[in-house]
Design a protein around this nucleic acid. Structure first.
Lengths: 197, 197
DNA sequence: TGAGTCGATGTCAGTTACTGTCATCACGGT
DNA sequence: ACCGTGATGACAGTAACTGACATCGACTCA
């Protein structure tokens, strides 16, 4: 018999999301979250560096997957396509948790504090992608631009995906929207706007 | 005789910057800052919404100037040029305080918390610029892209400007670097990278 | 089997960011 | 001389976050 229920971290994430949805980020104290998860405030801060971080848990794996996919891409592909393909791969991990993502984004959209955190996470992600591109021999500035542009494409596609209809109405709906498809469409739009091929 | 020394807000800004440079953002408490400015902690929070905001005071005026310059630009100019010109105008306000800007950027560069705040300020600035472009009749997506791209150009130019040599050695140096010039150069670089005219 | 280590948690005290409320008092007008 | 206003001080309170130490089941090894 374990001394405590397993997966304390996961319970904290779940409890936090529930409370943030119910009363908003600021109205939910860390003590509240910990209590709902059957733990103490101190334990919350052992799992997460701060109160905001609980909503960004798991992004490390996503980032690693993206960077590895960029690194493993065939040498012949254009940088922006490499980046887009990497984000599509990451999309697979998110696809199964659209419901979670929807609630999470709603909370972030309602809380400037969380938007700040999201922006810096995206910036650091873009920097990591740019680094991976440079490893492939892509020149510095082209790497930065492709990474920034690709990240912007992903952000826009993700926004559209979480706000797309389907699923919440039940399984009798017109099917689950596909994040990878949104990514390809957004990239095409970017090409049109910038006058690319 | 005034009951208190004038310009309490300015003294707080000055004291905060000094302390952040001396010991770092986290090692300087708000009480420290207020004491150095000859005020109380409570008064600090009457002037600034939070501890970070003290380093971003004055950006409101800058933002207004930029938005107004975009609005007042001749109708014939291309969006990206309108944006760049607006940032050049704002550059004039910064030009006189390069010393202040240098120290401020050094503190921000050393403090993730402050980087978050800077990112959201830049994002909201880009959104305001995009709005001003739309007022001019620029289509939605073109407005967003021109605003994002222009803001990126400004950010890069600003970074180069604060880290450029000159002045700190004294007046016997090779003259003060010109922010507007850096903006024009960065915009040209962006054009080259994106294959524009 | 028993001792020792380890990992996840609890407990508790402390600091600091931030807020609400009320008091103070120069200044400027009437 | 009186009064309202604006900027400040004083003080109490909440909540985020940290450091130090205790607990106790699980796992290892002799």
């Amino acid at each position: 018999m374990a001394r405590w229920e397993p997966n304390g971290r996961g319970r904290l994430v779940q409890a936090a999301l529930e409370l943030f949805v119910e009363r908003g980020f600021e109205q939910a104290t860390v003590a509240d979250i910990a209590r709902r998860a059957g733990l103490t405030e101190r334990t919350f801060f052992r799992h997460f560096a701060d109160k905001r971080e609980v909503l960004f848990w798991g992004q490390g794996e996503l980032r690693d997957l993206i960077v590895e996919t960029v690194a493993a891409a065939p040498g012949s592909a254009a940088p922006i396509d490499v980046v887009a393909a990497a984000y599509e791969a990451a999309g697979g991990m998110l696809q199964e948790h659209r419901d979670f993502s929807r609630q999470r984004q709603a909370v972030i959209a309602a809380t400037p504090e969380l938007q700040e955190r999201e922006l810096i996470k995206l910036a650091s992600l873009a920097a990591a992608v740019a680094g991976a591109l440079r490893e492939r021999g892509v020149p510095d500035q082209a790497a930065s631009l492709a990474a920034e542009a690709g990240t912007t494409v992903f952000r826009i596609a993700f926004e559209r995906w979480v706000s797309a209809p389907g699923e919440p109405g039940g399984p009798d709906e017109n099917g689950e929207p596909d994040l990878a498809r949104f990514i390809r469409e957004s990239l095409d739009e970017l090409r049109v706007v910038t006058g690319g091929k």
